[in-house]
Amino acid sequence: MAELLPPLKPIAIKERLSILFVEKGHLDVLDGAFVVVDKNGVRTHIPVGGVACLMLEPGTRVSHAAAALAARVGTLLVWVGEAGVRLYSSGQPGGARSDRLLYQAKLALDDAARLKVVRKMYAIRFGEEPPSRRSVEQLRGIEGVRVRETYKRLAAKYGVAWKARNYDTQEWDRADVPNRCLSAATACLYGVTEAAVLAAGYAPAVGFIHTGKPLSFVYDVADVFKFQTVVPVAFRVAAKKTPQPEQAVRLGCRDVFRETRLLERIIPTIEDILAAGEIAPPTPPEEAVPPAIPNPKSLGDAGHRA
């Protein structure tokens, strides 16, 4: 009698390829896998569940089957503009559970807990404890000053003429090359971070430093890693004055995500940051609906559908 194959398990976020850009093609499903068909009919397969985030550029069409498959395997679909400007995203299974979302919301609504979380973000980002007796708004201001100084320092290090962080998504070509490179780089980081946030079951909109935006928490988490990863890539590319800087930035970000093992670090960092709020996560209610396919052992990352 032939042995039964082991049950399928979703690939953990930390073990996936970080991002993949798709341009001018039809994203569909063939033989259970993502496939991109270009205008000449050439098919390119993408491993199912092996990519954390698919960045869909102009000229890309997505079938219903592809969107449904992305939701099942935990691959975030992000619609971006030609220059990497975020437009819309969908297709993650993080909403399959609410315990972590409720925990996050409880921390954000408690002023004392929120301040502790913000102080932890500051400490991780800058490698030192923030000044004592400061409010969230005051820490936000201090952070802004340090960020502007860091931009200046890195620009000088790579020999890039730097004025200020300034761009208009509606008039992309009018921005200078360093700002265009930075925008392309942060778009890559936000896509990967959002995929991890959703896979872990948290809400992208419930932020602590950033508020009132659909991706406030994504910006909070991404900022912790920004100057370690994508900002140096952006300035390095800007200094080279390549003919296609945005493409060079994307390739550089892909490489630095792999080199720094970013996907392995995001979810543990989120848990470390939220734990600083000193509020115990809520226990699942007794009437909670169990997984459709029970799993005796943990599989994938927190938040994946079974």
Score class of each variant (00 low, 15 high):
residue 24 K to F: 01
residue 41 G to I: 09
residue 25 G to R: 02
residue 36 V to W: 01
residue 43 R to V: 08
residue 31 D to F: 11
residue 31 D to N: 15
residue 31 D to I: 04
residue 51 V to E: 05
residue 35 V to T: 10
residue 36 V to Q: 09
residue 41 G to F: 02
residue 31 D to E: 14
residue 28 D to M: 10
residue 36 V to P: 02
residue 53 C to L: 05
residue 42 V to Y: 02
residue 46 I to C: 09
residue 45 H to M: 10
residue 48 V to F: 07
residue 43 R to F: 01
residue 46 I to L: 13
residue 46 I to D: 00
residue 34 F to V: 02
residue 29 V to C: 05
residue 49 G to T: 10
residue 48 V to Q: 15
residue 26 H to N: 15
residue 40 N to E: 13
residue 38 D to A: 02
residue 30 L to H: 15
residue 39 K to Y: 07
residue 46 I to S: 06
residue 27 L to S: 01
residue 53 C to F: 08
residue 33 A to Q: 14
residue 47 P to Q: 06
residue 42 V to T: 12
residue 51 V to C: 13
residue 24 K to V: 06
residue 28 D to P: 09
residue 38 D to V: 02
residue 40 N to G: 12
residue 40 N to F: 08
residue 24 K to S: 14
residue 31 D to Y: 11
residue 27 L to G: 02
residue 49 G to Q: 05
residue 25 G to M: 04
residue 44 T to P: 00
residue 33 A to S: 12
residue 40 N to H: 12
residue 31 D to V: 06
residue 27 L to H: 03
residue 38 D to I: 04
residue 27 L to I: 08
residue 40 N to W: 08
residue 50 G to I: 04
residue 38 D to F: 00
residue 30 L to M: 14
residue 48 V to H: 10
residue 52 A to K: 02
residue 38 D to E: 09
residue 41 G to H: 09
residue 47 P to T: 09
residue 37 V to H: 08
residue 48 V to E: 15
residue 34 F to N: 04
residue 41 G to D: 11
residue 25 G to Q: 02
residue 24 K to R: 13
residue 31 D to W: 05
